[in-house]
């Protein structure tokens, strides 16, 4: 015991010195992460003269000419579109992860790389590419005209925005589910089969429960960027459909009302945090960085 204590003493001394390596980062972290967030909270509760007010939050409940809640409607639309896109990603992406993780598929590593490759390309360029296809007189209209149909006004619809979200974020649903399922102990599946479970039972009782943490991570990685997106509605929404991200952009880039902008950002953060708590009990944060 005593001998060990001496050793630990030496080690603790050296480690003490190494721990100072992180000090510059603490300063950086406080300046660039903590202070900005405190500022968002502060500005959301103050007016332009730095006096405390809840007027910004009341403004969020403003009604339009027809009595509709302008900002609340936009927020609900954003969350709704993001939810639909997330569900589509889950329904479309889960089978992909399931198939790729099964033993029968050869070179699944190559296929998963192929699925992830487009995400390495600039996000703006990928979204822009869809404008060429579904835009006015785009490829879709041209093809439809060949068989005597169209033109369809797809740009500016909710469908176009959901398409953009699913396209951009689908790989982020597939990857976490795939990595959880690929690590799964295959003997569990064999054991279940040996004990007389049919393929459906194997799936429902073994594979699905074991892939839950991957699903939770996938949902987070799709829902969060989708709900806060402002590029997709701007490029594919054609100024007709706007989301809460656009409202924040307007407040900071054109209206110059940082207080109200901060308020909307706060509300968006809280909404996303709450929805994460609802469907993400056991998601692994570290899995998000692969």
């Amino acid at each position: 015991m005593k001998k060990k204590a001496k050793n630990i003493g030496v080690r603790a001394d050296v480690n003490n010195r190494n721990k100072w390596c992180a000090v510059p980062y603490y300063v950086w972290m406080i300046i660039f992460i903590v202070v900005p967030l405190v500022m968002v909270v502060f500005f959301s509760f103050t007016d332009s003269d730095y006096h405390f007010t809840t007027a910004n939050y009341e403004k969020f409940l403003t009604r339009g000419a027809n009595g509709e809640l302008i900002y609340v409607t936009t927020l609900l639309r954003s969350l709704g579109l993001a939810l639909i896109a997330t569900l589509i990603c889950l329904i479309v992406g889960y089978p992909v992860a399931l198939i790729l993780s099964s033993k029968r598929i050869k070179r699944s590593d190559l296929l998963i790389t192929a699925i992830m490759l487009p995400t390495w390309m600039n996000f703006l360029l990928r979204t822009y590419a869809w404008m060429t296809i579904i835009g006015r007189n785009g490829l879709l209209d041209t093809l439809l005209a060949l068989i005597g149909l169209g033109p369809v006004e797809m740009i500016g619809t909710n469908g176009a925005i959901i398409l953009g979200m699913v396209y951009n974020f689908l790989p982020f649903m597939i990857l976490p589910i795939y990595s959880v399922m690929a690590k799964m102990d295959h003997s569990l599946v064999e054991a279940a089969t040996d004990l007389g479970a049919n393929p459906l039972q194997v799936f429902l009782r073994v594979k699905l429960p074991l892939s839950m943490s991957g699903i939770a991570t996938g949902i987070t990685m799709v829902f969060m960027p989708a709900a806060s997106s402002f590029v997709i509605p701007n490029l594919l929404g054609g100024n007709k459909v706007s989301m809460i991200g656009n409202t924040i952009e307007d407040q900071f880039k054109s209206a110059g009302n940082y207080n109200f902008g901060s308020t909307i950002a706060m509300i968006l953060m809280v909404c996303i945090l709450l929805s994460m708590l609802i469907f993400n009990g056991k998601g692994d944060k570290e899995e998000m960085i692969m």
Partner: peptide, 30 residues
């Protein structure tokens, strides 16, 4: 210390980009 620092470090990864963007913008503006 580890717990506090890692949790604060998660913030920019978990926050929507637009929120990180406007918060740092506020810092520079003021």
């Amino acid at each position: 210390t580890q717990k506090i620092v890692t949790n604060v470090t998660y913030v920019p990864m978990l926050n929507p980009d637009i929120v990180t963007g406007i918060s740092i913008m506020l810092l520079f503006v003021y």
